[in-house]
Amino acid sequence: MVEIKRACVHRLITGWEEPSLYVVKAMFILDCDGQRLVAKYYDETFPSPKEQRCFEKSIFNKTHRADGEIAFLEGMTIVYKSSIDLFFYVVGSSQENELMLVSVLTCLFESLSHMLRKNVEKRSLLDNLDSAFLVMDEIVDGGVILECDSQQVIQKLNFRVDENPLSEQSVAQVLQSAKEQIKWSLLK
């Protein structure tokens, strides 16, 4: 937290850029070896997968042994958190508000923790990759922060699942329902 306060003071001294809604440049989760598990990039700072992986490797090498919460690399502000065998990262520009990035990181971690039933580790994440991508999509869209409250994210995702009754039906039930609808449309 001291590093975050220091970075805010530094920003006051150096000046501000034009405000923008596009706060987040990337979010990604790496394993304990620095390998990508989940990643979302929201602008063209790193346009190719090769450049993205190179950036992720650089970040991992700088942060995997550090006890901090914030890092600066290649003109980017990176906030990060580790849990068991996972490293969570949120990336913004060098002029970005670190507290905003930390709130996104916290929301990401807490939402995944809830979705994974507090079992935030590599195996559990890999078993629920679809949920991880949904959580990321609920928090940030195109670099714009949509939600920073993990309870709201969880509630939206649960609501979305409840709206889709087909996901809970078996194939046989769907086919039976389709047959019934066709039968009734032919009898009319």
Rank of each mutant, 00 (worst) to 15 (best):
Y22V: 14
D67W: 15
A132K: 05
K57G: 09
K5W: 15
E51W: 04
D162M: 14
P165F: 13
K81I: 13
K156I: 07
R117V: 12
S177N: 14
M115C: 11
N158A: 09
L99I: 11
R117M: 12
A132N: 01
I59C: 03
E98A: 10
S93H: 07
A66T: 04
S48W: 08
T45Y: 06
K179S: 05
V171G: 09
A71R: 03
V135P: 05
G92Q: 00
F109K: 12
E44M: 13
Y80I: 11
Y42T: 07
F87V: 09
H64L: 11
R160A: 12
V24F: 01
N158W: 13
T106V: 08
L116C: 04
S83L: 11
L157E: 13
D31H: 13
V135R: 02
Q35Y: 10
C32M: 12
V104M: 04
N61F: 11
N119H: 15
Q176D: 07
N119I: 12
L175G: 02
I70A: 01
L37F: 06
N61S: 10
D31Q: 11
Q176M: 09
D127R: 06
L125R: 04
L99H: 02
D31C: 07
F55V: 06
A71H: 00
H64M: 10
V102G: 00
E44D: 12
D127E: 15
C107P: 07
I78E: 03
F87A: 02
Q35K: 15
E121P: 00
E110T: 08
Q35H: 15
S83R: 10
V9K: 15
S185F: 09
Q52D: 03
V120T: 13
Q35F: 07
R11P: 02
Q181G: 13
L37Y: 01
H10K: 15
Q173G: 03
G92T: 02
W16N: 12
Y89I: 13
E96M: 12
A172P: 06
S167V: 08
M100Y: 06
L99E: 06
F55D: 00
R6T: 14
Q173A: 10
K5I: 15
S94W: 07
N97C: 08
E51Y: 05
L116D: 01
D162V: 13
D141F: 10
R36K: 08
I70Y: 01
L101A: 04
V2C: 08
Q151L: 13
N119P: 04
A66W: 06
N164E: 11
V9W: 03
R11A: 14
G92C: 06
Y80K: 10
D43H: 08
K122G: 06
F87M: 07
Q176A: 05
L12H: 05
A7G: 07
D43C: 11
V144K: 10
L37W: 03
V104L: 07
D141T: 11
V120D: 06
V24E: 01
L30T: 04
D141G: 11
F55S: 04
M115D: 11
I139H: 01
L126H: 12
M27F: 05
Q176N: 13
L105N: 05
E17S: 12
F87K: 05
L126R: 15
L146P: 08
E44G: 02
G142V: 05
R117E: 14
V153C: 00
I4D: 01
K40G: 08
V144G: 11
S103I: 08
L21A: 15
S111W: 00
Q35I: 09
V144Q: 09
G143W: 01
V120P: 01
M100S: 04
S20M: 09
K118T: 14
I70T: 03
P19C: 01
H64V: 13
